[in-house]
Amino acid sequence: MFHYFAQGDYIECKSLIGEIQSKYPEKNETAFHVRGLIARNEGDLDEAMECFHKAYEVSGKNKNVPIAVEQLKKASEVMKDNPKVWFWLAKAIYHFPAEKMQQGKTFNPVEAARTVLMK
């Protein structure tokens, strides 16, 4: 899966992801994450966030939210005038886990999301 993704062969990668997900339905966090990366690279941010969210649900942890925030920040740099990028970035920031912040720093996800949306 990673080989096809790294080579940019998204058709084969998606095919393999489909096989993995049919064999292990709703159980493979990595497959959902890579599918989200492909969707993001193809410009389908709705599907990307849906895949990242599914990966998050499967993992039972918040580790994909920081990844989604990072990827959406990159997308926002490229697509500055796309309101969907800013919406999904704000949504990801809103769900950002507070325990991922460095100790001693305060983080208000609502205010951070509002700041992104005001841009």
Rank of each mutant, 00 (worst) to 15 (best):
M1G: 12
H3G: 05
H3Y: 13
H3P: 04
Y4S: 11
A6Y: 10
Q7E: 15
G8K: 07
D9W: 05
Y10Q: 10
I11L: 13
E12C: 05
E12P: 01
E12L: 11
E12R: 15
C13I: 08
I17W: 04
G18R: 12
G18F: 12
E19R: 14
S22Y: 09
K23S: 14
K23C: 00
Y24K: 09
E26P: 08
E26D: 15
N28C: 11
T30M: 07
A31L: 04
F32S: 09
F32V: 04
H33M: 15
R35G: 06
R35K: 15
G36A: 08
G36K: 02
G36T: 03
G36I: 01
L37W: 03
L37R: 03
R40I: 10
R40P: 00
G43S: 14
L45V: 10
L45N: 03
E47G: 02
E47V: 06
F52T: 05
F52A: 03
H53A: 14
Y56T: 06
Y56F: 08
S59A: 10
S59K: 02
K61L: 01
N64Q: 11
N64F: 08
N64A: 00
P66T: 01
P66S: 04
P66Q: 03
A68V: 00
E70T: 08
E70W: 06
K73H: 01
K74T: 06
K74I: 08
K74D: 05
K74A: 12
S76Y: 06
V78D: 13
V78C: 07
V78N: 04
K80R: 15
K80Q: 15
K80D: 06
D81C: 11
D81E: 15
N82M: 08
N82T: 06
P83S: 14
K84A: 08
K84N: 08
F87P: 06
W88M: 05
K91Y: 04
A92L: 03
H95A: 10
H95N: 14
E99Q: 06
E99F: 03
M101R: 05
Q103E: 13
Q103T: 10
T106C: 00
F107C: 03
N108C: 02
N108T: 01
P109A: 05
P109K: 02
V110A: 01
E111M: 05
E111F: 09
A112K: 07
T115W: 00
V116Y: 02
L117P: 02
M118W: 09
M118H: 10
M118I: 09
